[in-house]
Design a protein around this nucleic acid. Structure first.
Lengths: 110, 110
DNA sequence: AAACTGTCTAGACAAGCATCGAAACAGTCC
DNA sequence: GGACTGTTTCGATGCTTGTCTAGACAGTTT
């Protein structure tokens, strides 16, 4: 996963290995539904949100939402925690920040 | 395309329209080859690079590289300019910055 | 333990996508 | 205009992915 990485790519070309790893993260948010799910989770006051609340915002079935959440989880962008019958999701800011940094303008080179 | 957008998604959930637009950009860089191509173009001294130079760095055929460049171009991440038989590519920093900003940590809220 | 609610996983299917070789297009040189 | 180089587009193919339903799993209540 995204264990070590990366200067803005405006400064230095990515290696094949870095690109492979980063692309996995970008591909995860390269779907509108998943991007919206991540935004709902990441913007949540209190830092976490129950999957039962997420389902309501989409016209997709529960299994489909669950599948999308799994993709985000496997990309390291969110974590999940079961409490009783309920499952709560949190965003992982560090992973988002890494993806963000790679595309950042060169002006942030300092 | 990415005409108007977007606070960090940690601050506010994305609308379906915003997500649709942004996801298009993220999907474009969600492929390792395309991510490497973008990094080669964006990090180039002089700001532009000839496609003939790009092809050498990959074990793919010319048409495949051309296809990938087209995906990046349609996502607005690069522009192309033909000069004689040669075609030169440039990165579009503003579009990269927009994608970067969306995933930026909330700490940049100021 | 059985019945219930909530959630995830598996499998099928249709749509989308990365790759190649062939063909078309763009420009240069003779 | 024809031959050439460089590049892009087209179409076929095999692989990947988004979506659904069915079923399995996790936890709670009776």
């Amino acid at each position: 996963m995204l264990t070590t990485c990366c200067l803005p790519l405006t400064q230095e070309p990515l290696t094949a290995g870095q690109a492979e790893s980063l692309a996995h993260g970008f591909k995860a948010v390269g779907d509108p539904i998943r991007l919206r799910l991540l935004s709902l989770i990441a913007s949540q006051d209190g830092g976490e949100v129950c999957v039962c609340e997420l389902n309501d915002g989409f016209e997709l079935t529960g299994p489909t939402i669950s599948h999308h959440l799994k993709v985000l989880r496997e990309a390291g962008l969110i974590t999940s925690e079961r409490r009783g019958t309920w499952v709560y999701y949190r965003a992982v800011p560090e992973v988002m920040a890494r993806l963000s940094a790679v595309l950042a303008p060169a002006a942030e080179r300092v």
